[in-house]
């Protein structure tokens, strides 16, 4: 990629998150360690309930007040875990943009679109009303809203879902973020619109050189679009590495099954869709076994006795936590792009 000297934008070390519940303490995140270099893109993949969104909330400081968090998160060199709330809020708010899943619910239906787009810049940078208007219009143009000047004063309900997501992206860009987090940003959209939004995010990322995290349950969103990928299961990181390496030679049974579950356009039309049988694990107790063992076809007694740890599974920092890494390379994902 870019030959400039890289340094770490986001560095997560041994992050744990526990949430008390009436039934007992929930282990929502277990020993997560991840890094994202400046200007690179990371895909975080997993089923719903795997802990992806909880991880984002923990990074942004939006987790429930009752949550107990341990471990360290550093953003551009600053340790943000344990930082006073107001300081952390201002630091991240001015440098990180987040785009959420449901654009209709994520926009304030009572406010005009333009002011919502420029709001973060108005609050964090104190720009004037005219500057805000110009900024909002230029951002709306940049995310591909036709006739941006007249859209400035319209309300969210006057736009389609895809357009609203573009507006959300524009509002996340208002602060020229160093990091953009797209939390299932395309999940609620039509397939064709999904592709448009993903392309837009890719272009914007390349133009601005910001770091980007794509959180998704859909491998197709990640394949060929991110530099690195992290696979989560049951609140744990089960595999991480360069996207290409992970897709070509998955080091974890779960990753392989996920890849196999992606429907391919090249596949014969009568081929059955593969799904992974079983349910994600109960997060009540800190388990000692491999969390995927109950659903894994390759599981042996070893898997239900000891927890596999992340170990090198290839070059370039490709790691996986699996006792029985798949030997057969998974099929490539050309069709899923």
């Amino acid at each position: 990629m870019a030959p400039q000297p890289q340094h770490t934008l986001l560095d997560i070390r041994n992050l744990h998150l526990r949430l008390p519940s009436p039934k007992g303490e929930l282990h929502l995140l277990n020993d997560i360690s991840l890094t994202l270099e400046r200007g690179r893109t990371l895909g975080i993949v997993g089923e719903s309930g795997a802990g992806k969104s909880m991880l984002i909330r923990a990074i942004m400081g939006l987790a429930s007040r009752k949550a107990r968090i341990s471990g360290e998160i550093r953003f551009d060199g600053d340790t943000i875990t344990g930082m006073p709330e107001a300081r952390r809020r201002r630091l991240l708010g001015a440098r990180v943009g987040v785009v959420f899943q449901n654009p209709t619910a994520s926009l304030n239906a009572f406010e005009r679109v333009g002011p919502q787009v420029s709001e973060a810049a108005r609050v964090h940078r104190g720009i004037s009303a005219e500057e805000a208007r110009e900024l909002a219009i230029s951002l709306l143009e940049r995310v591909g809203i036709p006739d941006a000047a007249s859209c400035h004063d319209r309300y969210p309900h006057e736009f389609s879902g895809g357009m609203k997501q573009r507006i959300m992206i524009a509002s996340a860009l208002a602060i020229e973020p160093d990091l953009l987090i797209a939390d299932e940003a395309t999940t609620a959209l039509d397939v064709t619109v999904q592709k448009e939004i993903l392309d837009l995010l890719q272009i914007l990322q390349a133009e601005t050189g910001m770091g980007m995290i794509q959180v998704t349950h859909n491998l197709g969103v990640v394949a060929g679009r991110t530099d690195e990928v992290a696979v989560m299961y049951g609140g744990r990181l089960v595999e991480t590495g360069p996207t290409r390496a992970v897709f070509e030679a998955p080091g974890h049974q779960y990753t392989q099954r996920l890849i196999a579950a992606v429907p391919s356009l090249q596949a014969p039309i009568d081929q059955e869709l593969v799904s992974i049988p079983g349910q994600p694990p109960d997060r009540l107790i800190g388990i000692r076994a491999c969390p995927f063992a109950p659903r894994c076809a390759a599981a042996t007694p070893l898997c239900s006795e000891t927890m596999p740890v992340l170990a090198p599974a290839g070059d370039d920092g490709h790691k996986a936590a699996c006792h029985h890494p798949p030997r057969v390379p998974a099929q490539t994902l050309e069709g899923a792009r």
């Binding site: 942004m60 939006l62 809020r89 201002r90 959420f100 619910a105 709001e119 609050v123 964090h124």
Partner: peptide, 20 residues
Amino acid sequence: DFIASARAKGFSTRYILWHH
């Protein structure tokens, strides 16, 4: 949800209450 996105933008609670 739009309050969650306002929080992610780093606005203070007081600001969110009055403006959102």
